[in-house]
Deep mutational scan, measured.
Amino acid sequence: EDGINLEEIREFAKNFKIRRLSLGLTQTQVGQALTATEGPAYSQSAICRFEKLDITPKSAQKLKPVLEKWLNEAELRNQEGQQNLMEFVG
């Protein structure tokens, strides 16, 4: 629908959760960090719904690039050390 690749979103949601957990981050931490930079659309409950795919494809499509960018950045910081990650997450 609307050129939205559901399979891709499903895959990303699954990987997002795995990668988030491997960084040792909670949904709350991700939500707080993103709410600070991106606004309330990225709250803990939004992250939770995204991971469960309990949102419309359109919403998922909107969240995905922001979550992807944030997660990549978080992983980079983590490679530089846990301290850097925690500063990034705030």
Rank of each mutant, 00 (worst) to 15 (best):
E1R: 05
D2P: 01
D2Y: 14
I4W: 05
I4A: 04
N5C: 08
L6V: 08
E7S: 06
E7W: 02
E7M: 01
E7K: 00
E8R: 04
E8G: 08
E11M: 05
F12P: 04
A13P: 00
A13G: 02
A13D: 00
K14S: 07
K14Y: 08
K14N: 05
N15A: 10
F16A: 07
R20C: 08
R20K: 08
L21I: 14
S22G: 13
S22K: 15
S22D: 13
L23E: 09
G24D: 03
G24S: 01
G24E: 04
L25H: 03
T26E: 03
Q27I: 13
Q27D: 06
Q27Y: 08
Q27G: 01
Q27S: 11
T28H: 15
T28G: 14
T28W: 11
Q29N: 09
Q29S: 04
V30C: 04
V30M: 08
G31V: 11
Q32L: 09
A33G: 04
A33L: 07
L34F: 05
T35F: 08
T35E: 15
T35P: 02
A36M: 11
T37K: 14
E38L: 12
E38G: 07
E38V: 10
E38Y: 15
G39K: 02
G39D: 06
P40S: 08
A41L: 10
Y42R: 05
S43D: 15
S43F: 06
Q44D: 07
Q44F: 02
Q44P: 15
S45D: 15
S45V: 07
S45F: 10
S45R: 11
A46V: 13
I47F: 00
I47H: 02
C48I: 07
R49Y: 09
R49V: 00
E51L: 00
E51C: 00
E51W: 02
K52R: 13
K52Y: 04
K52E: 14
K52I: 04
L53A: 07
L53W: 09
I55E: 03
I55H: 05
T56L: 06
T56A: 13
P57M: 13
P57K: 11
P57V: 07
P57N: 09
K58H: 09
S59C: 12
S59Y: 08
S59K: 13
Q61W: 08
Q61S: 14
Q61F: 11
Q61P: 05
K62P: 01
K62M: 14
L63G: 04
L63Q: 15
K64L: 10
K64R: 11
V66H: 03
L67H: 00
L67R: 03
E68D: 12
K69D: 07
K69F: 05
K69I: 05
K69V: 04
W70H: 00
W70N: 04
W70E: 08
L71E: 07
L71M: 14
N72T: 13
E73M: 11
E73C: 02
E73Y: 02
E73A: 07
A74I: 01
A74N: 04
A74C: 06
A74E: 08
E75Q: 04
R77Y: 06
Q79S: 13
Q79Y: 00
Q79V: 10
Q79P: 05
Q79C: 12
Q79M: 09
E80G: 10
E80K: 04
E80H: 12
E80P: 10
E80L: 13
Q82A: 10
Q82R: 15
Q83C: 09
N84G: 10
N84C: 14
N84M: 11
L85F: 08
L85C: 14
L85A: 11
M86T: 13
M86L: 12
M86W: 10
E87S: 11
F88C: 11
V89N: 11
V89S: 11
V89P: 07
V89H: 14
V89Y: 05
G90V: 02
G90Y: 13
G90C: 11
G90T: 12
